[in-house]
């Protein structure tokens, strides 16, 4: 997902720490208590969360780029306003999440610098290009849909600031998915050309969206630490299956075909999908997706070109402070 695919929990090195405190900490987690910023926590818990929350934040910010690509070309004023508001929301999500990550002791600037230096990951899905307007519908419907699937359980995450940020994010996300689905519905009720555009987008996005949930449980390098710490409450495959089961009827309603001829519904009603191409996933994660370089270049450009603005604001603030101090001294 935005984070979990990329995330491996830190080795649990509690042996090095006060064993009593660690046991108390785990007892609090087991009792569904929330951990707050100033509370004692194992170093590995702090590190795992810092990484997970900041990766999530990077994903929101990089995620602005593929959709931002269509703000200036949205086909109606209503769609333009909705898309701009949606992409703006993603920026807000990034901000909420960086703020949550900062409570663990690393500054936003440090986290962003790590991302710009290529040392931190973000969700692989945003390394795919948006080629047509139908991609905007598909992203809202499927990418935000998958994100919601992942984020709802995170609202109960053991770390208070992350859980609170996720509650805020989830409230905003449902508009995203609905606007995406509405775009798809409009296309599917439109001309043959529009319907073909919708199908083409689904064909291109389906498999990358399934990969968002991360490697299959069998091969996942996730230790159960994240689960034990109640950061993660469902496995990758559980969430992926939930998503597929929810999505198939939505696609059927649109009259679109999921590009998986081998998909069958099992006796319990679950839609069983075919094997996912994990080689592609690994390549995209390693920086070789169709847009990895473009995304990083765009983020670095904004950051570099904005440096003089941030500096001006800081220098002005210092001047103002000095003037106020001087005035007070008079």
């Amino acid at each position: 997902m935005y984070t979990q695919a990329l995330n491996t929990a830190e080795a649990d090195d509690r042996s090095l720490e006060d064993a009593g405190r660690a046991a108390q900490f785990q007892a609090r987690i087991d009792a569904e208590e929330r951990i707050e910023p100033n509370d004692w926590m194992p170093a590995a818990y702090r590190k795992t969360l810092t990484r997970q929350i900041s990766q999530h934040a990077h994903s929101e910010i990089v995620g602005m780029l593929p959709e931002g690509n269509w703000i200036t070309r949205a086909p109606s004023l209503r769609r333009k306003a909705a898309l701009l508001a949606k992409v703006q929301d993603e920026c807000g999500h990034g901000l909420y999440l960086y703020a949550a990550a900062e409570t663990l002791g690393t500054s936003r600037e440090e986290l962003v610098d790590a991302m710009l230096a290529g040392k931190a990951k973000y969700s692989s899905i945003f390394n795919y290009p948006t080629l047509t307007w139908a991609d905007i519908g598909t992203i809202g419907w499927l990418v935000d849909g998958a994100a919601i699937m992942n984020q709802i359980p995170l609202c109960r995450c053991s770390y208070g600031p992350y859980a609170r940020a996720m509650i805020r994010v989830c409230k905003e996300e449902s508009f995203h998915q609905r606007q995406g689905y509405e775009i798809m519905l409009t296309l599917c009720r439109g001309s043959d050309e529009q319907k073909a555009m919708a199908q083409d987008a689904l064909d291109r996005w389906w498999w990358p969206v399934l990969m968002m949930f991360g490697p299959p449980d069998a091969t996942s390098q996730h230790s159960d630490t994240s689960t034990k710490w109640k950061i993660k409450r469902f496995s990758n495959d559980e969430l992926r299956q939930k998503f597929v089961d929810a999505t198939v009827p939505q696609a059927q309603y649109l009259g679109l075909t999921i590009p998986d001829p081998g998909m069958i519904q099992d006796a319990e009603g679950h839609w069983r999908y075919s094997e996912i191409d994990w080689t592609e996933f690994k390549q995209v994660l390693a920086g070789n997706g169709p847009c990895n370089r473009d995304r990083m270049a765009a983020r670095r450009k904004s950051h570099d070109e904005g440096a003089w603005v941030r500096e001006a604001a800081a220098v002005y603030a210092a001047k103002r402070q000095a003037r106020q101090t001087a005035q007070a001294a008079e």
Binding site: M64, T72, L77, L84, A85, Q88, S302, G306, V309, R310
Partner: peptide
């Protein structure tokens, strides 16, 4: 709206988008 995703700081992505949305609404 061309700034969205490219502003010097995220706080300004938010601010400029808000202004853009006001203006598109007026239009």
């Amino acid at each position: 709206s061309e700034w969205c995703g490219h502003a010097p700081m995220m706080e300004e992505d938010m601010a400029l988008s808000n202004i853009a949305l006001d203006l598109i609404g007026q239009a």
